[in-house]
Design a protein around this nucleic acid. Structure first.
Lengths: 189, 189
DNA sequence: CGGTCAAACGGATAGCTGATCCGTTTAATC
DNA sequence: GATTAAACGGATCAGCTATCCGTTTGACCG
């Protein structure tokens, strides 16, 4: 998908590292390269060779979810109701962050280590802008809102739901907070 | 204010450490006790004796701002317009987090190391609840919103404004995002 | 099928950071 | 000014990150 290792064993190790990292992320354990190496029974240097910094590994882990989200965004552009398309995308973006803990940090960071991540996130931003533009053109959204605002608000909703809260209640909380933000964004008409 | 050192030199060192930490926080430098000790020209062990963990120092640094905010909240309770009192408090809470970088982490954390911080934050929560109750009783706020929701939303607004943004634009962004959230919270009547 | 070589591997270890121990100093009290 | 408990501070230990380099392995070719 992303790695371009020439040799068979290198490809296998690469995948094994990513799989192990995936487990770390799902368990809420911070991605420390030495720990991942030990958990994968792979030499530390091998891990560092494939992923010089933890962010590179994190971004690799996050890529599938980001790709899925980008596809969702493109699909949403075919939805007839501009407001519904916009609102659904926000929900999808928030759910992606809840479902996959690797998404949130990548989403909230401006500079990425992997060029592929940069490109993927740029695509997401463009799609967000398109969805926002359509909704704005339909005069459903308060003027002056930028696509950066939309991204930030998505992150804000997820963060808000993580304050003083058990992970179990996050889905419920994000739904409520997204509703509040959407109400605030929508023009009364 | 908070420390209860018996000896004169101990009190002087305590204050000097807090003042140095204040400078770290204002400069956006993470509070590492070894670094604070060196910057203050004070032995490492002395710093660790006064503040066993970095959070203790951070909470001490944050206390004045939190106290001010708590006073603001109490003052807001005398405001005649329940909605205005509520909205002004949210603005004050957000501004406090922007003005003083030590406030945000303390605000967003559920368990504190210093009992005084726990008490102070509890007071803040109570006041928030009171302001919310008044506004709710006046039927200006959508039903089902709890004081925890309000706290979380304040943190969310601040966080949102920090995503992909230069610190300079944070005040403007938070104002916009707070407006959006307030619109979403307010009942259309 | 065996030799050659570049690519990949992995453990030892150097460098750095956080935190503690304990011998020394200092302020308070009489 | 002697005594003593409290506070001080630097040396140092433990744990973590990241790199170096000798060894192994897979790919390619004769």
């Amino acid at each position: 998908m992303t790695g371009n290792p020439q040799r068979k064993d290198a490809a296998r190790n690469w995948q094994h590292i990513v799989d192990t990292a995936r487990r770390f992320v799902d368990d809420g354990v911070p991605l420390r390269l030495n720990d991942v190496a030990r958990a994968a029974s792979i030499g530390v240097a091998t891990v560092y060779r494939h992923f010089p910094v933890p962010e590179a590994l994190l971004e690799t882990v996050a890529q599938p979810a980001l790709t899925r989200l980008a596809a969702d965004a493109d699909a949403a552009l075919t939805e007839t109701d501009p407001w519904k398309a916009f609102a659904d995308f926000l929900k999808a973006g928030i759910d992606a962050q809840l479902t996959d803990a690797s998404v949130q940090p990548v989403f909230a960071t401006s500079s990425h280590t992997l060029p592929e991540t940069t490109e993927l996130v740029a695509r997401l931003h463009t799609s967000t802008g398109d969805l926002l533009a359509r909704a704005s053109a339909a005069e459903t959204i308060r003027p002056g809102v930028t696509r950066e605002d939309v991204i930030r608000l998505m992150c804000g909703v997820v963060f808000a739901a993580s304050v003083h809260a058990h992970p179990d209640e996050r889905p419920t909380l994000t739904r409520t907070y997204l509703e509040i933000v959407l109400t605030g964004l929508r023009l009364p008409t």
